[in-house]
């Protein structure tokens, strides 16, 4: 039986990346998001970025494996994120999570992704529920 989840519990941090240009090209191809901002250094430079930003969706989606690794017995009912500031190609990314609410039927987790900057790149949330009895 899994340990009870308490408000304030921290999820094990997940470190991903750094993502290189081929990695961003592969994501663009599989996702269909071909925005050149993520792939072209000149486009990124035109808006003052030192390198193309990693697709926000690539990073938001990476919270799912982290949540499953934390508590595979729970079902992820929702996941959401606000893309606060770009995380750039070549930066190591830290994904963290903390339980903000916990009831018998629902766990609400704050999610945060950090790149090289002090401020978060993504601030998100997830709702998890007990899985079907097996």
């Amino acid at each position: 039986m899994s340990d009870p989840i308490k408000v304030g519990d921290k999820l094990p941090e997940s470190v991903i990346g750094p993502f290189d240009a081929p990695s961003l090209e592969r994501y663009a191809e599989v996702s269909g998001d071909a925005n050149p901002l993520h792939l072209d250094d000149a486009v990124a430079a035109a808006i003052g970025l030192a390198a193309p930003p990693v697709h926000g969706m690539k990073l938001l989606a990476a919270f799912e494996p982290m949540l499953r690794a934390w508590r595979g017995d729970l079902v992820i009912a929702s996941i959401a994120g606000k893309f606060v500031q770009p995380i750039l190609r070549g930066e190591t990314v830290r994904l963290s999570g903390r339980v903000l609410r916990a009831t018998e039927n629902e766990i609400f987790v704050r999610l945060v992704a950090y790149g090289a900057a002090r401020a978060p790149g993504i601030v998100g949330e997830a709702t998890l529920r007990p899985g079907p009895a097996t």
């Binding site: 997940s14 994501y27 599989v30 690539k58 989606a61 990476a62 799912e64 982290m66 996941i79």
Partner: peptide
């Protein structure tokens, strides 16, 4: 490409 194991359809797939 998003760190999953492919055991289920990613939640973000509708993107």
């Amino acid at each position: 490409e998003t760190g999953g194991d492919g055991a289920s359809v990613p939640l973000a797939y509708p993107a």
